[in-house]
Design a protein around this nucleic acid. Structure first.
Lengths: 214, 214, 214, 214
DNA sequence: AATGAATGAGTCTTCATTCAT
DNA sequence: CATGAATGAAGACTCATTCAT
């Protein structure tokens, strides 16, 4: 009963691919509709399987969501942490690298919708919220904070309240993600690229006329 | 059932107060749980009336929500517009005035939760989203844009891409509102006051060391 | 708006009667099929209401079941306790009174099916089991035990291990109830009346003081 | 995959043992949870095989259950029948022999849980019920009846309604089995041994010919 | 004006059974 | 023989909305 050894039988291939297919379908729908409003029926249908199949791979809706986060968010976060840890140029360049790298990897993709979802529904799903806070938010904050500290330590940035500056700094990036997934993207009909450049430049230089005269 | 014409009977006086009581209860719950997750049962219970009574005043859940927005958001927005239109000092001072005035009136109150709700659920409730986009977002954006233009026109701010800068500028304020109502407020354990001061100063001056040397 | 005061409006009458109607339907089905196998849909349908209506009166399946027990079992138990407490004749007569009274009130009715259900499913529904053990079994056991003690105290019964005798004594009554609701009542095609008389006579002969003297 | 012809390869030996392993696992779970509440997944897992394997040996859940009964109940029943048929001592001794023998073989083991299960769920699974009634209950009843008849025929017991006495007599034994598997065994915290001695003594005193002479 | 009982479509989750490999 | 992925029907529970009173 030896089949072509180069090509796994269709059925077994499916098994290996299933989790990915399901996670992809789940990401689509979670981002589009939010956590509570996403029906597992629809996730299954989009992945081309029956409702029951979902439960072969994920114990319940919350675990499915966590798996989506693990699959899509955590790897990119890890890379950004590595970048901050090993970058050799100026902190302004590192800042640009992080902002635009994040945009390429996460911001402009569906994955950014997960931020919206969590902000929106964290209060209604405390266990999911806890997971996300510990695994994503805490790490992202720490990464940005260490970037600011690097700039200050090297004399590139002025001494500043790191904790609050971190929050302020994350805000425009978060908002850009959110606006991608709200109001059918029509809220701020902005060009993300220009938005980010404006943001980076504003933060590095401030608004004041004389501040730009350097 | 003879009514004293000089003095409304008690139940009729209640009638006048009813909408306010219902709107207050609705605001509480919408902010706490979001639009979809708020049960009209609970709204009625919190207002101390029966479920059916809600439908005497509001055609359905969406109309109730719109009424909440009209009651709580639009007046404050009008005041801010007036301030921008009639302010006489420096634009930096106007900026501070708007930011901290907004914080006092909206940001630190329950009303800020409406922003979270709309960002989160606009895609699932298109009609509500349209209403909010037209009545709130468009006006707020226009107000901030006119503030930036004032600064540029008067030579206080450098020439800048107003549209994108508006978005960038709104982001930290929006995020502060969102974080008040997400993750049980534990995400960024920031002091709003300090956060806003960091924000205003950063935007006015930028991050760079030499930018602060003015 | 005064209606005929002698006759409640149909709609309101229903409201008052609803819990009873629902409990009656629930008793029927619980007894017929057991706890787990009873579908709330069917209970509602048998009571002539929709599924949702059930939840207006009972928080969930377990609470519905507890209400059935409270409605149908506890009152009869209270009466039996009163009888044991206040009976004035011989203990043999009291025994007969309890056995046949229990048969009239509980044993031969649908209510006896509840015993079957609890024996069968107690392990799968620990919370229900606890309720039943505390509210029903413990009280019934105490009642029988006090009956035996009365007989011994008065010299009518020989001294005997009361605790175990209580269990032995309850067994035939329980089994008669169980057999009424198992195997479509075809297991022991016994006449309950004769079964009980055989039982009472056997036990009284076994219990009598002089019976031990052989 | 060269096989030693003298010694079955391990997996083939397993094959022979499979049905026993499956039946043992099934007995455990049926007794613990009942028929409907037992998941075939769990049976397979406990036996260390996959779910599909179960269906190689048993057509469906009901056939699996019947096989459990055939394996565990019928042999002991046959032995008891033999004992009644060939016993040579007094009927009181035979009674004790049957009661305590049954306790050793069945009553105190997991197998007794099958009685509970059948009483509980016979109505929901008519085909299984029919099988059990014909193969187990009818035979057990006949055996006890013949024991009573033996006692009467030999003048050891008073004449008595055999059919009903059989039912009464079986009740405490059945109840003891049931109580072993209900309410986490906490209902009647009885010592089985003492319970049975109380029972035997009570009944023999009630049955004895001279006991009727009062 | 106010009530609140009633509805029923909708959603997550479970599990016996099948069948391609 | 053995596997285990897949199915889909079924059931508990929710909640916006209606309407008789």
């Amino acid at each position: 009963m030896i089949k072509c050894p180069l090509k796994k039988p269709r059925w077994e291939r499916r098994k290996d691919a299933r989790p990915q297919e399901l996670l992809a379908a789940a990401l689509d729908l979670f981002v589009e509709r939010g956590f509570a409003a996403t029906r597992l029926d629809d996730v299954a249908a989009r992945a081309g399987v029956s409702k029951g199949t979902l439960y072969l791979y994920f114990a319940n809706k919350e675990e499915l969501f966590k798996a989506v986060v693990r699959e899509n968010v955590l790897p990119a976060l890890g890379e950004a942490e590595d970048t901050v840890g090993s970058f050799e140029g100026s902190t302004a360049d590192l800042f640009r690298e992080i902002v635009f790298g994040w945009w390429d990897r996460i911001g402009h993709s569906k994955v950014s919708g997960i931020s919206k979802l969590m902000l929106a529904e964290s209060n209604n799903f405390p266990e999911v919220a806890e997971f996300y806070r510990d695994e994503v938010i805490a790490r992202a904050d720490a990464m940005i904070a260490s970037l600011l500290e690097r700039g200050i330590r090297r004399g590139e940035f002025r001494p500043i309240d790191v904790q609050h500056a971190t929050s302020v700094l994350c805000a425009p990036m978060l908002m850009l993600m959110l606006s991608q997934h709200s109001f059918n993207c029509q809220v701020h009909p902005v060009s993300p690229q220009q938005y980010l450049e404006t943001f980076v430049e504003l933060f590095l230089n401030g608004l004041r006329r004389d501040a730009a005269s350097q």
